[in-house]
Design a protein around this nucleic acid. Structure first.
Lengths: 179, 179
DNA sequence: CTTTACGTTTAGAACGTTTTGAAAGTAGGG
DNA sequence: CCCTACTTTCAAAACGTTCTAAACGTAAAG
């Protein structure tokens, strides 16, 4: 039996990461799996994970594939074992870069595209409109233009963050934070 | 009857904002309500909104309260009317600042707190542990420490962004983006 | 004081998502 | 080549969320 404090601390960390994952639009199970792996010095198999979290093997299998696709964990080969073993990616900057570039970026880009289409469609049709509608169209165009600017800026900001986070080092941060 | 292009553009913008709202963990209806208000030159009543989006008054009522709490729209008083009228907050920086400070910040702060508790609880108990568990505890402490640093940095970054976004001006951005 | 016009709350229905256990698939080992 | 140990897929069930329509509350108007 493991010391109660150690186990409690592991549990609350795992639970916290689950909560966080849910908050950011992933499944909570993904967060808990990631947390479990992160706190384990040894790589873990699907069975280990299923048993540790008391969830079905099916769920572990599917969620681990998501986790892998997001670059949050890697499969590791263990000599003489037929099972799959996983280890958490412990560089959080890599993790959030993966998420930002693969998900938030896509979403923002899509928004920018849609708005661009709308604006050009409306600009083309503007001349043919009767007066009262032209006024409304002008207002709508202005507002959509604001949205465009905003999302284009967000896109740029994300891009530069994703590009620069290569160089971020957690030891640097630790010093910075504790100062 | 409104010109088909104008209406189509409004609809796709509204739908896009709904999608985005869903992506960021709000209800899609909230996003659509906000979009509808944003594209309307006149303030709109609950009935206007319900009719425009073909959803129930009840839903409009509840979602508009959320929208108001997030500072994404304001009630406006219309002379001689008993209805409630709303206008969208059209400064997007204000909107995201509200969201970041009221939601993402809280979540990150919570994570930092929980991790802090865990670390100190575990540090206290460390001495009493048998050797094998002490080793594991050391490992867990290290990983949790990394998490702490990461979230503390995120907290700082959010803080400074929220604090500085007072001074951000959309005209500035527009120039910046289009260059 | 009653009626009317509105906003809010609520219970239940509809819907989507997640979980599970079982069945199917796959690849080493004998 | 089959057996065994494992992973993946899948359909059904459990669950949670969101929607609606109806009931309710409230306040202005008559």
């Amino acid at each position: 039996m493991m010391h109660e404090n150690l186990e409690a601390v592991q549990d609350s960390t795992v639970a916290g990461l689950g909560r966080l994952a849910g908050f950011f639009g992933f499944s909570e199970v993904m967060g808990r799996l990631y947390g479990t792996l992160l706190l384990s010095p040894e790589p873990m198999s699907l069975d280990d994970l299923a048993e540790g979290l008391r969830i079905s093997k099916g769920s572990v299998s599917m969620n681990m594939r998501s986790i892998e696709r997001w670059g949050m964990a890697k499969e590791v080969w263990v000599r003489g074992e037929r099972k799959k073993y996983y280890m958490a990616e412990s560089d959080f900057w890599i993790v959030i870069r993966n998420v930002l570039s693969g998900r938030e970026m896509r979403e923002v880009q899509l928004a920018v595209e849609v708005l661009g289409d709308s604006v050009s469609k409306l600009r083309e049709a503007e001349d043919e409109l009767p007066d009262d509608e032209r006024e409304l169209a002008g207002y709508v165009l202005e507002r959509i233009g604001d949205l465009q600017s905003f999302f284009q800026f967000a896109e740029l900001a994300l891009e530069s963050f994703v590009a620069s986070s290569d160089e971020i080092d957690i030891e640097e941060i630790r010093k910075f934070v504790s100062s």
